[in-house]
């Protein structure tokens, strides 16, 4: 007997497998466990992330979709909204009650009607447009603000490295 959480995750998986947005792929690591997913996100064109492919893992709570998953990149992503350990920090991954950053609009935060697809699309736009108001990676945010060329170089180097070039 499956929980409502795993059924809903399974439906999202089915939907994404048949009809994923461009540049996004996601699904459970093994079908024995619907609560651990792996995703690949393509770097948006026209950004220093362009040409890169960024693997990440998503961990879902047992009461999903009441609470959001957590997401962590598995390669180095130099970005104001990504912690040095890869953890992604954007508003859609925060439940409405939990507001560590204060700047976030409640409407942008997690709600049970959000989805894995919306998260991954938000992460894609986050790569293109960092939010440096309350950064997860202070160094990266500072560099993004003050030394944009250096920031882009680090990002591009990481992309190259991650592709083994």
């Amino acid at each position: 007997m499956a929980s409502s959480a795993s059924k809903r995750l399974f439906k999202e998986y089915k939907g994404l497998s048949s009809d994923a947005p461009e540049g996004i792929t996601a699904g459970p690591v093994t079908e024995d466990d619907m609560f651990l997913w792996e995703a690949l996100i393509q770097g948006p064109e026209g950004t220093p992330f362009e040409g890169g492919v960024f693997p990440a893992e998503l961990k879902f709570p047992k009461d999903y979709p009441l609470a959001p998953p957590s997401m962590r990149f598995l390669v180095d992503v130099w970005h104001p909204n990504v912690y040095p350990n890869g953890q992604v920090c954007i508003s859609i991954l925060h439940p409405p009650g939990d507001d560590p950053n204060h700047y976030e609009q409640a409407s942008e935060r997690w709600s049970p009607i959000q989805s894995v697809e919306k998260i991954l699309i938000s992460v894609m736009s986050m790569l293109a447009e960092p939010n440096d108001e309350s950064p997860a990676n202070v160094e990266a945010a500072k560099m993004w603000r003050e030394k944009r060329a250096d920031y882009e170089k680090v990002v591009r180097d990481n992309v190259r490295k991650s592709l083994g070039l």
């Binding site: 959480a5 399974f10 047992k62 009461d63």
Partner: peptide, 24 residues
Amino acid sequence: VWEKTQGGSANIAEPKVMRKDFDG
């Protein structure tokens, strides 16, 4: 079911119902 998936017995691994639901 709630007990097994979210309640006091939730640490037991999720049953493999999905396997037969799906051409993995």
